[in-house]
Structures are given as C-alpha cells and as structure tokens.
Simulated assay, not measured.
Amino acid sequence: MTKLELFALTFTVIVAFSAVSAYKTTIVTTIVEDNGLVPPLLDGLDNPQEQCRSQIQSQQLDHCQMHLTQGIQNPRRPFQREQQHLQQCCSQLNQVNPECQCDAIRQVFNEARRQGGQRAISQIASKAQRLPNDCGLEVQHCPL
C-alpha cells in the first residue's frame, strides 16, 4: 500500500508542478536616463501654483497689459501700435511654461481690469480670452 500512496503522492506533485509552471510571468523595465538638470519650474518649489506664481513674477508681462488696455484708455491709438503690443505680448507669454500661461493671462487681466475700470471690463475680458488663440499658445482656453 505504501507504494501506491507514494505513487499517488508523486503523481499529484507532478500534476501540480506542471500546472504551476504553465503560467509565464513577463517583467518589463523602463530605464530613464537623468541628465542631472532640474527643470526651472521645479527648482525648489513643491506646489504647482507657487511654481507658476514665482515664474510669472519673474516675467515682464507689461506688453500684455498694454495690449488689453489699449483702445480703452486711448481709443485713437494706431492699429499698428496695437499689433506691436500683441506680438510682444505673445512673445512674453511664450516664455512662460505652458502650464502657467493661463495663470499669467489671469494676472494680466486682473491688472488691466484695475486700470481700465468696470466700464471696460467686457472689452478687456474679450481680449484676454482671445490671447491663447491670437498667440498660438499650447493652452486653448483660459477661464478668467
């Protein structure tokens, strides 16, 4: 009887082993090379809003503000001058990281709104909302 039990045990182990070995595991690894450079946006700041605020403060966005308030403070200003401010504004916005561009537009909008007063808010808002499209920014729409 022991031989029969030993045979049954051996047979069970062989069946169990073949069932377990039928499964195949594949491990995929990805190697990312680090060039040692820290992106300027991530330099010491953890909060994305802080990162944007810091970057926007370091940028000069005065042409964007002039573009938004143009025609409100001085309606007779030449069209060529308006286009010049728009082009320089776009250049300034393109220097801001794409994830911070809406924050930059909102900041410029708020400053222009303070300068232009409540009566001109719809014109300023309209110009601000067109900036992503007019400047060909990665961001398509920025809620003000």
Rank of each mutant, 00 (worst) to 15 (best):
V15F: 15
Q140P: 02
S122I: 06
N35A: 07
G117F: 11
L37F: 12
H67E: 06
A120E: 00
L86G: 04
Q118R: 14
A112P: 09
T69R: 03
Q129T: 12
M66L: 13
H67M: 01
A112M: 02
I14R: 02
V96W: 00
I72S: 08
E50R: 07
Q60R: 11
A104N: 02
Q115F: 08
I14G: 05
C142W: 09
M1D: 12
A8L: 14
L68A: 05
Q80M: 07
L93Y: 02
C142D: 07
V108F: 03
L86T: 08
Q84I: 03
E82F: 02
V38D: 09
G117S: 11
L6G: 01
P132L: 07
C64N: 07
R76F: 10
A125S: 15
D103Q: 12
Q107I: 09
Q65L: 15
R106S: 13
D43E: 05
S21I: 08
N74F: 08
N74C: 01
Q55S: 09
L131W: 03
I14S: 10
Q123N: 11
L68C: 13
L86R: 05
R114A: 14
E99Q: 14
P39D: 09
K3C: 06
G44T: 07
L45G: 03
G136I: 03
R53A: 11
G44L: 12
A22E: 11
P98E: 15
G36I: 06
N110G: 08
E111Q: 12
A104T: 00
R106M: 04
V20F: 11
